[in-house]
């Protein structure tokens, strides 16, 4: 069975989700739950670090789509970082760079929240 884990941290008041393993139809509910919890506690500044994400499927991508509006309505954003070329290819293939800011590095994404604030 595919393995998927989510680590959570906070950096400068930005919530970092670290994805690890396979984000697919089977594991997508875990990410849904993580987003739901963040939204419930009104935490809208989210950086998803994909360093250890080895695979993402359409259902996994769908989770980002399902929450982005609520997050942005809360004056926040979901930013993506540290993707492997393979994972980036999937994001790119389905047109995600149009809608999401994707960074090479987590700190860049975190800083970006404060660029905007200024």
């Amino acid at each position: 069975m595919s393995e998927f884990k989510i680590g959570q941290r906070e950096v400068e008041n930005v919530n970092i989700l670290e994805l690890k393993g396979y984000l697919d139809a089977h594991t997508a509910p875990k990410l849904e739950e993580a987003f739901q919890n963040l939204l419930k506690s009104q935490r809208f500044r989210i950086v998803v670090n994909c360093r250890d994400l080895s695979y993402i499927s359409s259902a996994g991508l769908g989770v980002f789509m399902a929450f982005i509006e609520d997050v942005r309505n809360g004056k926040g954003d979901i930013k993506l970082t540290n993707m492997s070329p393979k994972v980036y290819n999937v994001f790119d293939l389905l047109g995600f760079p149009l809608l999401y800011e994707i960074f090479k590095d987590e700190q860049e994404a975190v800083t970006r929240f404060f660029d905007r604030a200024k």
Binding site: A25, H26, S57, A59, G60, L61, F64, L94, L98
Partner: peptide, 27 residues
């Protein structure tokens, strides 16, 4: 998704999976 669909027996989860797959695939 086919594999997951048949593993799920809860219609609500099945519909959600269909919804997520469409969202992720077509935006």
């Amino acid at each position: 998704t086919g594999k997951e669909f048949s593993a799920l027996l809860d219609p609500e989860r099945q519909i959600r999976l269909l919804e997520l797959s469409l969202l992720g695939r077509f935006l």
